[in-house]
Simulated scan of single mutants.
Amino acid sequence: MSAGQSIGIFDSGYGGLTVFKSIAKKLPQYNYIYLGDNARSPYGDHSFETVYQYTLECVEWLFAQGCPLVILACNTASAKALRSIQQRVLPVKYPNHRVLGVIRPTAEVIGNFTESKTIGILGTRGTINSESYLIEINKLFPEINVHQQSCPMWVPLVENNEHLDPGADYFVEKYINEIMAKDERIDCLLLACTHYPLLIPKIRTFLADGTVTLLGQGDIVADSLSKYLQKHPEITQKLGQDAKRNFYTSGDQVFFDKHASIFFGSDVSSRHVSHNSSQL
């Protein structure tokens, strides 16, 4: 591989753009390719095998575009596909490529955000059922009590830009009440889905006393990536530093661009990638 290549960022839809936004702010010099698999989103209720297959197809597409490093900016993909790709695929087919996720970096710092040693995890059914956070946090912080809550309606609300509408109140309040009822000592809620930061204003209205920390993942992943690149010059030296941003979606471009700008914080102009061709 030659210098001038890009960091790939993958998500099942729009949520990964909240992570990309933080990464681009922290590391603006690098070239990036973002791929949202909107045509098959959301991933949260799919089986492990289906998520693995979808994720692998997208990762391999990003490899083909010249990305030696891919970030799975999707908790479901990180929970259901990352380890298999790292252990089964990369050593055999792509020994010089790397794929990183969002769960491990978050688990590594979660202990810094709780005084009561009691946290709540809010995520998709897929992420919650995988118990990936329980496993990783227990390895690093066995003293922390972890409670989980799946929030299956939150991604559809965000994807359809209805997350701040009055109609979203019922589902936001429902899941917040359910997780907080599990332990009164919870002082940190991890938003273990990259869509959820857009719900923070609404979530805060149902956390009346303001003593609970809402923890998003964008800045955490950006800091982790920065440290990773410092430790791995063999990857860094391959990367172009022209600050290029390229966006791709397997869904409708116009619809994607309209909604993606909300997540990314600035205008987005994407290109379409079809599942029905050799492109993906």
Rank of each mutant, 00 (worst) to 15 (best):
Y94L: 00
T55A: 03
Y248E: 07
G16S: 12
I110W: 03
T236E: 15
N138I: 03
C67I: 08
N38I: 05
L164A: 08
A243P: 00
G251H: 09
S84A: 15
L239V: 11
A79W: 04
T249V: 02
G111P: 03
K231L: 10
A222Q: 11
L199M: 14
Q230C: 11
T50W: 10
Q279R: 10
L56A: 06
G4M: 05
D267L: 14
K202Y: 03
Y43N: 01
A39L: 11
A24H: 05
I203R: 07
P197Y: 03
F113D: 09
I7Y: 01
M180C: 13
N161A: 13
Q149I: 05
S269D: 12
A81V: 12
G36W: 02
I200V: 15
Q237V: 12
N96Y: 14
F206W: 12
G120T: 07
L214G: 08
V102I: 11
Q241C: 14
T194M: 08
G44C: 07
G66Y: 01
F10G: 03
A73V: 00
F255E: 10
T236H: 06
P233W: 10
T127F: 06
H97S: 11
D209G: 10
H259D: 02
V102T: 06
I103W: 02
V92Q: 08
G66L: 06
I103P: 02
R245T: 12
T55N: 09
I176D: 04
N246A: 15
A260F: 06
V268K: 01
F263Y: 13
G66C: 07
Y32D: 04
S278K: 13
N129L: 14
E60G: 05
R40T: 13
T50A: 13
G16A: 01
L239E: 01
D37G: 08
T127R: 14
I9S: 00
N38C: 14
N75W: 04
L100W: 05
E159T: 02
S277M: 08
H46E: 13
D257N: 15
L72K: 09
S6V: 07
G15T: 06
T194C: 09
A3Y: 12
L215G: 01
S116C: 09
I203K: 12
E173T: 13
L215F: 09
Y170C: 12
V92E: 14
N177W: 08
L207G: 11
G123K: 08
I103G: 03
D252H: 09
S150E: 15
V19D: 06
F63P: 10
I179G: 01
G13N: 00
V155P: 04
F10I: 02
T114A: 04
K202V: 01
F48E: 15
L90P: 13
G123C: 00
S2I: 13
G15W: 02
L27W: 06
L100H: 09
E162Y: 14
P105C: 02
Q53M: 15
S270D: 10
Q86S: 07
L100K: 05
S78C: 05
N145R: 15
I137D: 04
S84N: 11
